[in-house]
Design a protein around this nucleic acid. Structure first.
Length: 290
DNA sequence: GTATTTGTTGTTGC
DNA sequence: TGCAACAACAAATA
């Protein structure tokens, strides 16, 4: 499921239920692989009684900040990192929700100033467990958060930066290069295909073969697809769409890429699918030529 | 039984 | 050394 815009959507979903709340109790599925490298017991201890401070989404990751509860110095911030992997989701359930098999982390939260409201459960689910929960206690943000590459919508993501990256990865297919998080943070399989389709570049073209004009067009479409995916999937401002795909236009490749016999929304001609860079890739042969 | 999956990492080999 | 390709991780679904 989760790429850039899906991470933004799920962050917002937890945020709307969790803001102004304190954590009443924490459930962890300790043996789940999603906790690799972190100590679920320490996470439970620190987050129980903690107050929600805020959250951000960057690339495919989320960070939720809490004012640590228990015997911690005043102002100590607890950082909860979430990566949704391939099949992860964040849900909001009733306060008394009973965790199921694939619910690896459940935070029961309540707003202390609204005693008539029993609160909610913030649920992290991930059947395949390629996702990950990380945890850090301290004033400054942890490495796993600060080491995320510069946002595609920031000034640091320049056409020049894209160009020099493509030169270094010259012999790899452009589709594979777009999936590299160190330069294209948040781009996943469907967004990569969407970007190449809009730029009219064949996914099998080698990164080193793109002309300066094509590089610039690719750079622009990276930003456009990120911007419009964030707006339509995660919603603008305070608005949160009822579900992930509620507002994705039919004119996007997104809706057609998995249909057998799917047609290109721009040309009306058949789409093609093949494995490129180790991932199933969809393109429109009528407008993306080798 | 087979093949598929919106992701990342470690290993191998060029 | 740097880069490219691929297996592995795990579980549901068709």
């Amino acid at each position: 499921m989760p790429e850039l815009a899906e991470a933004a959507f799920f962050r917002k979903r937890w945020h709307r239920a969790g803001r102004r709340c304190g954590i009443v109790s924490v459930h962890t599925h300790d043996r789940a692989k999603v906790f690799r490298g972190t100590d679920p017991a320490a996470l439970r201890r620190t987050l129980t009684g903690a107050r929600y401070l805020g959250s951000e989404a960057r690339a495919k990751q989320m960070s939720f900040r809490f004012e640590a509860g228990g015997a911690h110095p005043d102002g100590a911030t607890a950082w909860l990192g979430v990566h949704l992997g391939m099949s992860g989701e964040l849900r909001v359930e009733p306060f008394d929700y009973e965790p199921r098999k694939h619910d690896h982390l459940v935070l029961r939260v309540a707003d202390p100033r609204r005693s008539h409201d029993r609160g909610r459960s913030l649920v992290f689910t991930d059947p395949r467990m390629f996702g990950r929960i990380q945890f850090h206690l301290g004033r400054n943000p942890p490495d796993w958060w600060t080491r995320i590459a510069p946002d595609i919508l920031s000034a640091a993501f320049s056409a020049e930066a894209v160009g020099s990256f493509l030169r270094r990865r010259a012999r790899a297919p452009i589709k594979a290069v777009l999936l590299m998080q160190e330069r294209f943070p948040g781009i996943g399989n469907w967004m990569a295909d969407e970007i190449l389709w809009r730029t009219a570049i064949h996914p099998r073209r080698l990164a080193g073969s793109l002309s300066p004009t094509e590089i610039r067009a690719l750079w622009r479409q990276c930003r456009r697809v990120c911007r419009s995916a964030l707006d339509t999937i995660a919603g603008r401002g305070d608005y949160l769409p009822p579900d992930l795909n509620a507002h994705i236009p039919r004119s996007w490749l997104f809706w057609h890429r998995w249909d057998d016999g799917g047609l290109c929304p721009k040309t009306g001609k058949p789409l093609e699918r093949a494995e490129i860079g180790g991932r199933t890739t969809c393109w429109s042969p009528a407008r993306q030529k080798l």
